[in-house]
Design a protein around this nucleic acid. Structure first.
Lengths: 217, 217
DNA sequence: AATTAAAGTTAGGTATATCAAACTTTAATT
DNA sequence: AATTAAAGTTTGATATACCTAACTTTAATT
């Protein structure tokens, strides 16, 4: 049996190891992502190792073993399907879904999740533009660039967000951004890295921090 | 904050106090209903009392205070709405829903439960024939008689079950029973209290224990 | 009134998941 | 090579929710 807490650790390890350039994942980074102390993480890592869910050596890096990765992907699949359900069937907005999905993702019932998938018409992406893993654990590869990689003159369609906190989502909603919004970069201000853009025909200044969290194609 | 465990105690106290003839609810009865030891219940009762959720005196009876009853009814409302959802929208059969609903009933989101109610068309009864409390906590009064109260010659329609264990539900499903099935009592055998009946035109012998758990009108 | 059985409580212990404080290891800097 | 800062671990503690075994209270029977 994998506990709810363990599932949250595995999910966190999975996503922190997903978009990583160099350097292995460490205790502190995992702790700050989970909002708990490094001491607690150290203890839990030993337990996850004993259960053969992760690969871990004291003072070394943290990675998932096959069993742990499977569990992580299942939780992510459930999370994203529930998020899709909340938006498609329950009239939730994309900034309201994360907290509830964090609870729903731990419900144990294979039949429920299969039926949910069917009810939603086997969706491939969730409301934040993230791919939904298939039943067998396959996850569509996504090579996405962020808006801050663009140069003046480029025109994009927004395909997802890197950050799904309510604060961020509410902010970009106010800027007029949603999935598939058209964005054209007019200028880049070197002073602070902000971008002058046109979003669905309206001029908007976007900070670098925001631009880094918007996926475009 | 009311924890998941506390919600389960409150729900149990509520239902054990609902269909009660004489004698107050005690620690042992509550413990055996929750499948835990009386010692654990004794401890938890003190805690629930401190939180002003229940009325309790050592060696005395157990009952809900207003705050506790409200919480219990909310959990029951969520449980029954989720059960309805599983049957109406997710192709679950009535013997499969209880376990999953026990998990779903603890999800915290007022919006979710309101939307669920709306999605289902504001149902009044769940798939076991139990009334679903309204948002304000009002619960339809149900004066239901059980099949074992009938006498030969009586004809009934089944309106609910008193027991929602998979074993019981699977058993009566095999007998051809479902909500609104027509049942006629042909004879009662005094030896073991069993009933000879006709269910939707087919002759069936029903044990007293089964008859006691079927609500009819 | 004394005894006893049933019901209920308390005491001491376990597992999980958390923490802060103290300590150790690793790696970077001088 | 020595120092130091950052990263990570260990230790001892806490809270929740559970247990068994021992004890106490209540209520029924003799």
């Amino acid at each position: 049996m994998i506990t709810v807490t363990e599932e949250n650790y595995l999910k966190a390890i999975y996503s922190l190891n997903a978009d990583r350039d160099g350097k292995e994942l460490g205790t502190n980074e995992l702790a700050s992502h989970l909002n708990i102390s490094p001491a607690t993480v150290s203890n839990m890592l030993q337990k996850l190792k004993e259960k053969k869910l992760i690969n871990y050596k004291k003072y070394g890096g943290i990675s998932l073993l096959e069993k742990g990765e499977k569990a992580a992907i299942t939780v992510i699949r459930k999370h994203r399907l529930w998020e899709t359900f909340l938006v498609d069937k329950m009239e939730f907005t994309w900034d309201e879904i994360h907290e509830v999905a964090e609870q729903l993702e731990h419900i144990k019932s294979t039949k429920l999740i299969d039926q949910l998938d069917k009810l939603l018409g086997y969706p491939e992406y969730d409301p934040h533009g993230d791919p939904i893993p298939k039943v067998n654990g396959e996850m569509r590869e996504t090579y996405r660039t962020t808006l801050d990689q663009g140069t003046p003159g480029d025109s994009f369609s927004m395909v997802g967000v890197k950050n799904d906190s309510p604060a961020f989502l509410q902010h970009i909603t106010k800027l007029g951004l949603a999935i598939y919004s058209k964005i054209t970069i007019k200028a880049r201000y070197e002073f602070d890295g902000s971008l002058e853009t046109e979003i669905e025909g309206t001029k908007q200044i976007i900070s670098q921090k925001v631009a880094e969290n918007i996926y475009v194609n």
